[in-house]
């Protein structure tokens, strides 16, 4: 009972604090950088804010970065949802936006994509962004990590909305690779046509018809083992937010 009461009180406190943050920002421009863990210098924070504002306004979504020193016992997966929904982030009816949250207490990061950004950013994309930023986070180069996150998100969301730019060099290299592989297979097949002298491995041609007779046919069960793998599922919606969402991340 005490535990439930504690969680309720903590949730109310969190939401109140989040609402204060939100209402404070309503007076001025929308805040998209929350550096509660104090990882960025003033200059870096300003630069990052400028970058996130530009991307968010151009693409009509919210791109958010948040750093925390613990999640008040919620765990980062629940906390990031409460944070996003409590601050009423996202644009439009489906609350389109994407957020990166760093928890310095456990060295974890999460990326949550909501609404249109959920469509634009796949789990593979989240994994890919994670792989790119984790080395920066491990080295303490937080600004570089956040900048990379923002740029990757911009590319993916812009590509989803306006179509990805044609990657000339990449497509050319892939096409050449395909051409070389096809040419190698085709010419090796042609080369194989020149060889017709082959050893006969079997005597199947000389099997006496109907001569095969099975006298023993024994299938003995020995043992079995069972392995199980947890099914990865997207996190459930926090309830108050519109639009679908996905969360992914890891440690650094």
């Amino acid at each position: 009972m005490k535990k439930r009461l504690f969680i309720f009180v903590m949730t109310v406190c969190l939401l109140v604090s989040l609402c204060i943050t939100s209402s404070a920002s309503e007076a001025g421009e929308k805040v998209r950088v929350f550096d509660d863990a104090d990882l960025l210098s003033m200059l870096e924070k300003e630069d990052l804010e400028g970058l996130l504002d530009r991307i968010s306004e151009e693409l009509n979504v919210d791109v958010i970065v948040s750093t925390v020193d613990g999640t008040d016992g919620y765990g980062i997966d629940r906390y990031i949802e409460l944070f996003y929904d409590g601050n009423d982030f996202g644009v439009g009816d489906t609350n389109d936006g994407v957020i990166l949250m760093i928890d310095m207490e456990y060295g974890e990061y999460r990326i949550m994509a909501n609404g249109l950004c959920d469509d634009a950013i796949s789990y593979d994309d989240i994994d890919s962004i994670g792989e790119d930023i984790v080395s920066y986070l491990s080295d303490g180069d937080y600004y570089e990590a956040f900048e990379m996150f923002a740029e990757k998100c911009e590319y993916l969301i812009d590509g989803h909305i306006n179509g990805f730019p044609f990657k000339f060099t990449q497509n050319l290299l892939i096409s050449i690779g395909v051409g070389l592989v096809v040419a190698l297979i085709a010419t090796l097949v042609m080369k194989g046509q020149l060889k017709s002298v082959k050893e006969q491995k079997t005597a199947n041609l000389y099997t006496r018809k109907g001569s095969m007779n099975l006298s023993v046919r024994n299938d003995l069960f020995l043992y079995s083992n069972v392995t199980r793998v947890k099914i990865q599922k997207p996190s459930a919606s926090a309830g108050s937010s519109g639009g679908s969402r996905k969360i992914g991340g890891g440690r650094f």
């Binding site: 006496r208 007779n213 046919r217």
Partner: peptide, 11 residues
Amino acid sequence: YSVTRAGEIGF
């Protein structure tokens, strides 16, 4: 499983 097959075949 341990599977055993025995018999004969002619060539």
